[in-house]
Structures are given as C-alpha cells and as structure tokens.
Design a protein around this nucleic acid. Sequence first.
DNA 1: TCTGGGGTCCTAGGACCC
DNA 2: TCTGGGGTCCTAGGACCC
Length: 418
Amino acid sequence: MASARDRTGPADAPRICCLDLDTFFVSVERLLDPTLEGKPVIVGGKPGGRGVVTAASYEVREYGVHAGMSITEATKLAPKHTAWLSGRGTTYSDYAQRVRDLAERYSPVIVIASIDEMFIDFTGCERVFACDDDSGPDETIYRTVAELCQAVHDEIGLPSSAGIATSKVVSKVASGLAKPRGVLLVPKGSERDFLGPLPVRKFPGIGPVGEAKLRAAGIETLAQVAATPSNQLEKTFGAWGSHIKRGVLGLGSGDLGRERPTFREHDPAGTTVGSISNERTFREDVNDPSSIESKLSSLCERVCWRARKRGVKARTITLKLRYTDFLTLSRSKTLAPTNSELELFPVVRDLYVQARTRKTPIRLLGLALSNLGLFGQLDLFGASTETLHDVVDDIRTRYGFETMQWATSRKPTKNVRT
DNA sequence: TCTGGGGTCCTAGGACCC
DNA sequence: TCTGGGGTCCTAGGACCC
C-alpha cells in the first residue's frame, strides 16, 4: 500500500489544469438544436455581413474556415449546407457558469480565463482524490481531470478538453493539443521535450507579429527559442523575451495569478473588470454629423448603464475612431469619477472633435471606461441626476436597454429613397 | 462584400512634483 | 542658477486573446 507521502507527491508535481470547452458556442447550439449535430456550423454574423466568424465547427474547419476569419471569406469557403447562426450571448454565459459550478466541486482554486476556459489548481487535492492503489500523483490527477471532463459531458452535455502541467502556460498548450475531448498530462521535467517541436505560434502570447519577428531571427520552433540566449530574446521582445524563454523551459509560474473578468455583469464580484467598452462598426461607413452624434450618444448611454449596473464609476473615458481605410486612433480624458452619460457626453463630443482630423468617412466608433472604482450608495453631489438614472435603469432592467433612450441618441430620420 | 467586439497588458513620452 | 534623478500620472498606440 502506498504511503500518504507517495500519494501527495512532491509539491511541484503537475497540478495546474487548463479546462477548455471544445467549440463552445457551436456545442451549446447543438444542445439546443440536435439537428445541427455532425453538420458544418458557423456562429457569428450572416453571409453578406461585415463581421468575422466567432466560432466554427470541426466540419466547417475542414473547408478552411476558422474563428476570426472575415464573413466574406468564410462565405466563399463554407459548403452550401452550412448552418449560419448569429449567436446568443446570455445563453452561452449561463452554460459557462454551470461548468464553473461543476468544477468547483473538484477544487476551490479556480481562475476564469475566458468564457470557455478556466484554470484549476489541484494543489492539496491529491489526497482527497487518491485511490487505495499504487497510483502516483500524476495518475491521480490525470484520473480526476478525466472524471471532471466526463461530468461536464454527462451532466451538462458539453465536450471539453484539458491539459495538466506544472505551469499555466504549459497546461494551456497541452489542452489545445488534447482537443477534441482529450486530457493530456505533461510530466514534470518533460516540458522542453513536449514544447520543443511546436511552432512558436503555439505559445500563448506569441501572435502574428511576434512570429514574424522570430522568423526574421531564424527562429521557428519553441526548441529554437529555448536554445536562444535570453538577452537576444529581450532585444526583440523586451521583458517579454525572458518570460517566453522561462515558459518554454517549463519554468513558468505554477501560480494561477490574478482573476480575470467574470462575465457576470450583475455580479458584485464582477468589479474586478478593469474596463467597460462598447464599439460599433457601421453597416455602411458614415460621414454625416447627426448619425455620428447619435451613435456617440447611444454608446455613451450603454457604457454608463453597464457601469451603474456594476456599481462602479470611471475616471477615464476613451474614444476610438476607425476610418474607412482602417486607420484607427484613440483620444482619452481623465476626470472626476462618474458613470453618468449626462456628464460624459460633452467630454465625448470634445474627444471626437480632437480625433476627427480627416474628412474620410468613419467605419467604427467606440467608447471605453477605465480607471474604474467602486462608489458608495450615497452621492451628495449627484443626487438629482442619480434619481433620474435610477428611473431609467429600472425600466431598462425590466424591459431591456433599447426601451429608453436620450433624445441625443435617436437615429436621424432617413430620407425615403424612391 | 477584406478586416467584430469584448477585454488585458505593455511601452514610451511628456508633465509635474519632490 | 544650473543640473539631474526618481516616481507617478496621463495619454496614445499596439500586440494579443477568445
């Protein structure tokens, strides 16, 4: 019989799990409509729209379609019988929450990375899950995570994959390679062998730009990154350089780090969110001042409404502007904390005037609130505006955001075309 | 009918204060 | 009066992730 010490294992054995839901949005859609099973499915946008693909099923990936691809291109590649779905945000959030609740039965230490991905720390859980056999800590955690994935499937109906390693980065790469419906454990000490053959793009944080820079230096695989001196990597990547190298060597942090956004707007704990933003690409590029003005006003209402729902005020407001030719710029202003569109709209107008230096039509407008802070229930100086917001917010909470609008947000009446 | 929308984090320069 | 350094805040931009 194994001793308790054997079961617990060394403290630095693999214990970080990255749990990732496979083609999450597509899987939820299939739960709600089983006739989609086995068919090519695209979530996000409609053929002919200006958007990009949010999620693509494996069946449609075979044709070269992937998340992030423009709808235009996906329309050309996807087969005729593809199901195009526009997606439903709150339903996805509800399912994501159910998976989190389930995962909490396995470990109390969970960090939400995104709607379909979380990190679970199993430190100290080995003893709880250990069986009365000779299995070591690696077998124990592997079996436990496999059970968790099975439970996600049996109880909620969603397919998932998981990676287990000594650090967050390695567990994340492992979960990606485990897809679909797999569990992959990278034993301590074998991180370099595991990552080495992979192209640099597989490493979280290396995107198209980083990949291009590394290629220019003759580096294409993670093994080559591992063999490159840290100071050389730092020249191209700054502080990031040594971070990447440590990760590749398996020396990444085994700490789960800071909590990411929770995606629960009304959750008081959701105040960990560092910014609130809304942006909109116009169906057609615009140039007329009244359309622009009403869009700015409605964006302003939207972000302020979300801030109030969350019980936060912002100190910084940022306006984002994208022209037809994709030139994108931002202008920001820091002021006294507020979440009132009545206070912010004049500032937004000023920022727009500062930003709009060209006559080129506009493709996108966005607003972001940042520098967020909690505020007390009592605000002696803003009492009257707040009462007004309370009334508006109450109606919106009951009947939806669109039911109430300031006059400035009204869309200009269009000329009737004949 | 090329290129969404919600975020995070980092960098770099300038202003300002001590 | 000159010279300089460090810290912090603000602003703008960009890479990256899902």
